[in-house]
């Protein structure tokens, strides 16, 4: 082939792959989600061997390889263990819509649980108003609006009267 006639143009072809899924929650997650929806409360499971309270509930304690079957009710209050102020318009993969930045979200350990749960925090994006160790409570949607998934949680809200540690 004559080198001079060789095609050197770079071609890139755009393509979107849209894949729908339908997930079974399973026995443990379904009970967790129905408790949240119907009674507005969080439940976990306690390992019979190491006594660790795990949320979300799951069939096996990973550390002990034993079946979890004791259910315990958890508090709606807890402690912030890590947080961020997000400045990127992250897309919510469950809805396809972006979360409007800046927004605060964090990881909270509910009282009575050894696990943490991540969600939005209802504070201004200001380091004076959010810190590790802050006490939080969960704010849920009204009963008639709850559908049995984590979107039933609106956000965490700081408990009143707290001062930032120096």
């Amino acid at each position: 082939m004559n080198q001079k006639n060789t095609v050197t143009e770079q071609i890139c072809v755009p393509m979107t792959v849209d894949v729908p899924y339908r997930f079974a929650a399973g026995k443990y997650m379904a009970r967790f989600l129905t408790e949240l929806r119907d009674n507005g409360r969080f439940v976990g499971v306690k390992c019979p061997s190491c006594n660790r309270v795990q949320m979300p509930p799951r069939v096996v304690c990973a550390a002990c390889h034993v079946k979890n079957d004791e259910w315990v009710e958890l508090s709606s209050e807890g402690t912030m263990v890590g947080f961020t102020i997000m400045y990127l318009p992250l897309t919510d993969p469950t809805t396809g819509k972006p979360h409007e930045p800046p927004f605060v979200y964090g990881s909270v350990r509910l009282d009575g649980s050894d696990s943490t749960v991540e969600h939005m925090v209802n504070v201004e994006p200001d380091l004076d108003k959010i810190w590790v160790g802050m006490r939080m409570k969960v704010v849920l949607r009204d009963r008639e609006e709850r559908i049995g998934d984590l979107s039933d949680i609106i956000h965490f809200e700081p408990l009143p009267g707290q001062k930032r540690p120096q």
Binding site: M29, L33, T84, H119
Partner: peptide, 22 residues
């Protein structure tokens, strides 16, 4: 997990941000 925490997922940056604050 599709039913637990995915609404907050989508980028590694938030994950490392929480590592940083803690």
């Amino acid at each position: 997990h599709p039913l637990y925490g995915r609404s907050m997922a989508g980028a590694a940056v938030g994950y490392f941000a929480m590592m940083g604050t803690s």
